[in-house]
Amino acid sequence: MKVIETKNLTKYYGKSRGILDLNLDVEEGDIFGFIGPNGAGKSTTIRTLLGLISASSGEGTVFGMDIHTETKNILKRVGYMPGEANFYQSMRVRDMIKLSADLRKKDCQKKAASLCDRLQLDTNKKIEELSLGNKKKVSIVCALQHEPDLYILDEPTSGLDPLMQQEFFQLLKEENKRGATIFLSSHVLSEIQNYCKHAGIVKDGKLIMVNSVSEMSKSNTKRILIQGIDQLPALEGVVNLEQSKEGFQFLYQGNMPDLIERLQGLPIQNMNISDPTLEEIFLHFYQDK
């Protein structure tokens, strides 16, 4: 079952482009990473799905419900973490978390206490006294305490220290195991690579690639390192060529037999062929397409 589905979803802010003909499918139980640089359209997509902004054209459904007309019912099943965690400054953390639960008409005290404990969040502090990372923790508790079926998380780990990031992803894994679907946008590609099952790359408001993360890494592109030669023979399909003391490094998109043939007879001391990181794939898409 598709939890999120958009068809030609488009949003313009006046004459400025937000997203263009975005076609996105997220299956139930998936952990879907939404990758793109600032201004690519990640937050616009998320806000459109949540009804915070209206699409200029196109369609979208969440749990099969129309994002334009059934926002209330969609939001009942969603836990959302905005990119910037902003709350009412003069409130205490515990009151803020309770307000979030009360607005959902749910008693989440037990779950909230457990989350605060795991995230080491001091609930007696006022929001205005919190660091960015601690505000993010409040945001995590507000998004997770009511145990929704879908998490929509906009750059959720920004501001969290590495230990907390690890704890956060552990929580997400547990929620995913429970059956929840997770849709998260991120700049941190290693997060997507380590925790997501599928990923989509958005560029200039358009979704230019969607695949499983493992398939993305197993693309025809390979990272090649060659040591021991002074000059690289002319080859088609070489991108991001770098020369250093260690040798030549590049991404290779051509045929492997061609590469081996060209390298024959050269004084190669060491050669390494590996799958590129998601970051390299991402940069490749952004530089070439």
């Binding site: 939001l75 959302y80 979030s100």
Partner: peptide, 14 residues
């Protein structure tokens, strides 16, 4: 105060 994203994503109509 950028709290609209908190309030208006709770399950109620605008």
């Amino acid at each position: 105060a950028l709290t609209a994203e908190f309030l208006f994503t709770t399950p109620h109509t605008r």
